[in-house]
Design a binder for these strands. Structure first.
Lengths: 136, 136
DNA sequence: CTCGCGGTGCAACCCGGTTGCAAAGGTGAC
DNA sequence: GTCACCTTTGCAACCGGGTTGCACCGCGAG
């Protein structure tokens, strides 16, 4: 596990500090998207700005992607290994309205949308809200 | 115009105060979704909380609907007259990344999404980002 | 050993959203 | 008319998430 984490960091040319290893481990273990508040909760001894900047570093190096699920707080999830090339996360996200967890549904593709003329699409953000398997 | 505004307010049982008339007029005139900051900008003599509460009142009475376009700030647009019954705004929204305007594409319907088992959908939020006709 | 640089912690700030409370204004009862 | 009452409005403050400036620390290069 440790080696896997270091390998991932190294692959994206991120210096593997202790904090970064811990945060990446947590991100990889959690099956849902993680918010800054989640990290603060988990790593209460670490500073918020450190966690924040770590996330930003990971994001810049395309190790994780940011999800805007409409709750106002941004969440992050590790990118699939396959998504090295085109980073765009063209998958659907699911927000559970009970537990407020955000899931990456990697298998669900975003359908093509036909826009009125004049609108040039560049990205699509599709969030399905409802109840997840754990909450029903 | 004035009568139209009063009629709309009355139809939703909202007492027509001067502020509300002005705000509704502005909402109806603007072809894009409006943020609280937009209102503050336009009505600089009015208090932020008044604008905020007016929006909330309109929203509660289903005169306008709220749009989470992923920018973190919520925007509002008047509902179509037809949307009296089921208030859900099942249309696509377009966010221009240049002028940061949010458009309601009432004609573009949200396609059905097939979810993995266990996920029960209740609402769908679909935002297309790109460049609008005015910015190209 | 010393210098320099990147990472971390601390503190403060910003901004959008939200709320408590008091003043103002309109409306109905008398 | 006037008083009481309720709603709307304005003011101020708060909150939470995101963000930044700056100082400190540790480590590797020279």
């Amino acid at each position: 596990m440790k080696e896997k984490i270091d390998r991932k960091l190294e692959a994206k040319s991120i210096k593997p500090t202790a904090m970064r290893q811990l945060i990446l481990e947590y991100l990889m273990e959690s099956r849902n998207a993680v918010s800054l508040a989640d990290l603060e909760d988990k790593f209460d001894y670490a500073d918020r700005s450190t966690l924040f900047r770590t996330l930003k570093t990971f994001e810049k190096h395309k190790l994780i992607h940011c999800i805007e699920d409409g709750t106002g707080s941004q969440k992050y999830a590790v990118c699939l290994d396959a998504c090295e090339v085109d980073h765009e996360d063209f998958h659907v996200h699911f927000l559970c309205e009970k537990c407020h967890q955000t899931y990456c549904l990697y298998d669900v593709e975003v359908p093509a949308i036909k826009l009125p003329s004049g609108f040039t699409p560049e990205a699509i953000n599709l969030i399905v809200k409802g109840v997840c398997h754990a909450c029903r």
